[in-house]
């Protein structure tokens, strides 16, 4: 009896151990590192302002179309940095994008294949209209009483999301084939955590500026900084 219990305990411990080793997984096991990608853009920012003719209580009187957002020190926001050609399991985290102030917030989300929560904080009608080729395109109404809709995006792809009610609303869902990615903040910096060590290629995607790559040597357990310059094509 005691023996049995002990064996059971050992089994559980072993499983737990294995799980513990495998969990933060792909990286630490092989000694992954952090890549801090700074994306720069020397061109002019491109943010258009439109007059709003409806829902001004939620949307405000002016809407901004954020085509190219450049922060201090020429940092380019809303770019997705990732390790090109890497392989890895989905993060298991459900990503979310909100519709707030008649804007998609954040403007760009990145996630691994799976479900995404689409929130409607505005409490007015929006419609989620996606433009995709790998995944089925969707166009679903999200009326005021529908606070959350959950949609599945199974294939890696950069998906444009719009709302036809508010034509200026534009967001992106980046479905990534592996968990080594980050989205640049307002100063143009993205962090890729637990990136596989060794010679890698960092790929940066921006909705208006396309893709740029740069080679990097990822050091295990350390942060490697890399600066990537994007230009208007």
């Amino acid at each position: 009896m005691m023996r049995k219990a002990l064996a059971g305990f050992a089994a559980v411990a072993l499983m737990a151990g294995t799980a513990w080793v495998a969990a933060p997984p792909f990286a630490d096991a092989q000694g992954g590192g952090t890549v801090e990608v700074e994306v720069k853009y020397s061109g002019a920012a491109d943010v258009q302002t439109l007059k709003v003719n409806k829902d001004t209580e939620q949307c405000g009187k002016e809407a901004k179309v954020e085509n190219i957002v450049v922060g201090g020190n020429k940092g380019l926001a809303n770019a997705v940095a990732s390790i090109a050609g890497a392989k890895g399991q989905p993060t298991g985290k459900k990503a979310a994008i909100d519709q707030k102030g008649c804007k998609f917030v954040p403007h760009v989300i990145a996630t691994t294949p799976g479900e995404v929560d689409i929130l409607n904080s505005d409490g007015i009608l929006h419609n989620i209209h996606t433009y995709s080729t790998a995944n089925p395109s969707i166009n679903k109404a999200q009326p005021k009483f529908k606070k959350t809709m959950t949609e599945k995006f199974e294939k890696p792809e950069f998906i444009k999301v719009t709302c036809d009610v508010h034509s200026w609303m534009l967001g992106w869902i980046a479905v990534m084939p592996h968990p080594y990615f980050g989205v640049t903040n307002e100063s143009g910096v993205a962090k890729i955590e637990n990136a596989p060590a060794g010679k890698q290629t960092v790929e940066v995607w921006h909705e208006k500026l396309g893709k740029v790559t740069k080679d990097v040597e990822v050091k295990p357990g350390a942060t490697t900084k890399v600066t990537v310059e994007m230009v208007k094509k």
Binding site: I128, N139, K140, A141, Q142
Partner: peptide
């Protein structure tokens, strides 16, 4: 069902 390829969205999951 909505009207595919147009702004008319599907409402089957979006009515009370």
């Amino acid at each position: 069902n909505g009207v595919l390829g147009t702004p008319m969205p599907s409402f089957i999951d979006s009515v009370e």
